[in-house]
Amino acid sequence: MSEYNKPLPGMDGLTKEFYDFCKAEALHFQKCSSCGTFRHVPREMCAQCNSFEWQWAKSTGRGTIYSWVVINRALHPAFHDPNPEAVPMAPVVVEMEEGVRLLANMVDCPPDQLTMDMPVEVVYEAVTDEVTLPRFRRRL
């Protein structure tokens, strides 16, 4: 795994907490303790009610495809060099049952088979010893 050369998140603060849940294969989102609103990306306070009280709440892991882009030319060396088979790739926006949206990739769906509102569920890919990224697969 030491050869993984793609961008990695900064593993500190709330971002580390988010990805540590992914490493434990249990996707979590922040949930406001005051008004119950889920949020992503992680932030220190609730934009709905301005409460600083929150907890990590386990996601159902289920969502639907909201949008995607098929990257034919990566424009970032890590995503096609030295492996030209890496493109096309298709980052997807997934609308989760909690109401938040999450950017990810599919593991079992070629870009040309993506459809709007396709039901998907989270899976996990450990890309380094420290970092596990959320991915998605089709849900029947």
Binding site: P7, P9, H76
Partner: peptide, 13 residues
């Protein structure tokens, strides 16, 4: 932290 690790790196994307 949330786009680039998934390969979404530049404005046209």
């Amino acid at each position: 932290d949330y786009y680039m690790p998934q390969g979404l790196t530049v404005p046209p994307q």
